[in-house]
Design a protein around this nucleic acid. Structure first.
Length: 425
RNA sequence: GCGUGAUUGGUGAAGUGGUUAACACGGCGGAUUGUGGUUCCGUUAUGCGUGGGUUCGAUCCCCACAUCGCGCCCCA
């Protein structure tokens, strides 16, 4: 048997409802925010991610799906969405759009070669937003409000927003040096992972779970003291706007994020849900004012976030949130082969008049068909036999109370219209 | 990349070194030739992740691999 590739999953039956619901919700929400949908390729020139996400990040250094195409070009399956959207922004000269800021959203699969576990796959879906052309802290706050509002609409409760500021590139660099200076004498006290972090990304030492309580951790320099006045001001404004929107948050100086491109605001949204392990971060993002320039565009302020679909689905399951789907309106039972044509025509008519309609395709006997009715749970059942066709009076049964109606063929649409409330699409 | 547990029909699963792989759900057929969730009866894996090995004999023991689950790293 051929199996699906490791770390991928098929969507069918169980998940369908939740996924479609979330996708519709995202689309509707982004419409309300007046954001514009963008779609970029699943694969890009490898160089884009090396320059964009950063050579030192794990995502690029050991988790990408790389391949050579038939023209010997180095390609990479996108491990995240930002780099592609930025490339598109530059390539399509969106920076010249008079309608600034450019507010984009995207949704689609991303690929990372990782060991799968709860809420983590090799092919996974992200919904994300990128806003270009404005450094207004209102946008930082707005970006945070999008996932928060989405979770609110879905009905998630155990949600925590944490924010921090990394400052501009200059203050971040100064801080990094201070951290190296601080941890150098304590390097032997730190765990193996932290020794590694010390060399690669000292900022990440701060959110180590093992060394968390050590003395050198507690008295480590704080980023907030290294922010210049402008960055500090920006950070304060972001918090003010969050308060205006009545979004609960806490400032967590240990949030540093793994992607190299962040500047100033960074944030995470966590699900405070039992059994979520280290994959409880539902959403992360921040400001990246340097990235557009790094990738060859004009200096452009930008801010964005990304949210993982699979983790959101986990959270929905963990909090036992039930998504209703609109059930079947009508199920048609032809009594025998002789009535199939008539039944099929009726089925198509009903569908085209807005009723969610299904029919027996299996030549089931009447008993088996009623078993099928129990599975499909339609609002109404129409039984078509010789009598019905001859008399042009249809037998319609209400599933809920088993009441039977005799309805003239030409009145069937009016009858159903009256009985079944039309649902908006 | 590291650690750890698991893998038996459509599903949940029990089980044993030896010619019939329990039980339940679901499916199908019937009791009931045009009316349902009940009941009863029948039927439903030549097969126990894949490949090797040990053995007279392996679903069971050993090894490797694959996949899934969980934790770490990292990230959404």
């Amino acid at each position: 048997m051929i199996q699906k590739p490791k770390g991928t999953y098929d969507v069918y039956k169980e998940n369908n409802k939740e996924i479609k619901y979330i996708e519709k919700l995202i689309e509707a929400l982004m419409d309300k925010y007046n954001y514009e949908y963008v779609r970029t390729p699943l694969f890009e020139a490898s160089e884009l991610f090396h320059r964009g996400v950063g050579e030192t990040s794990d995502i690029v250094s050991k988790e990408t799906y790389d391949f050579k195409d038939r023209g010997d070009r180095s390609m990479t399956l996108r491990p995240e969405g930002t780099a592609g959207v930025v490339r598109s922004f530059i390539e399509n000269k969106r920076y010249a759009d008079p309608n600034i800021p450019v507010k984009n959203w995207y949704y689609g699969p991303m690929y990372r070669y990782e060991r799968p576990q709860s809420g983590r796959f090799r092919e996974f879906y992200q919904f994300g937003v990128e806003v270009f052309g404005s450094n207004d802290p209102m946008l930082d706050a707005e970006i945070i409000s999008i996932p928060v509002n989405l979770y609110k609409l879905i009905g998630l409760k155990g949600i925590k927003v944490s924010i921090n500021s990394l400052g501009d590139i200059e203050s971040r660099l100064k801080y990094k040096e201070a951290l190296i200076e601080h941890f150098k004498p304590h390097i032997d006290d730190l765990c193996d992972d932290c020794k590694n972090r010390f060399l690669k990304n000292p900022l990440r030492i701060l959110d180590c779970k093992i060394d968390h309580d050590k003395e050198c951790m507690k008295n480590a320099p704080k980023i907030i003291d290294y922010l210049n006045e402008e960055s500090l001001n920006h950070f304060k404004k972001v918090q003010e706007y969050l308060e205006v929107m009545e979004i609960d948050y806490k400032v967590d100086p240990n949030i540093v994020r793994g992607l190299d491109y962040y500047t100033n605001t960074v944030f995470e949204v966590e699900a405070d849900i039992n059994g979520f392990g280290s994959n409880n971060v539902l959403c992360g993002g921040g400001r990246y004012n340097g990235l557009v320039e790094t990738l060859g565009g004009p200096k452009t302020a930008a801010v964005g976030f990304a949210l993982g679909l699979e983790r959101l689905l986990n959270a929905i399951k963990a909090e036992n949130i039930k998504i209703e789907d609109n059930g079947l309106d009508i199920y048609i039972i032809p009594m025998s082969e002789n009535e199939k044509e008539y039944s099929y025509k009726l089925c198509q008519d009903l569908r085209m008049n807005g009723f969610k309609t299904d029919i027996d395709y299996m030549n089931r006997n009447i008993k088996a068909n009623f078993k099928q009715v129990d599975r499909l749970n339609p609002k109404y059942i129409i039984i078509i036999g010789e009598e019905e066709i001859n008399s042009k009076i249809l037998t319609v049964k209400e599933n809920l109370n088993k009441k039977e109606y005799k309805v003239k063929e030409e009145e069937i649409l009016d009858f159903l219209d009256e009985k079944i409330e039309e649902e908006d699409i």
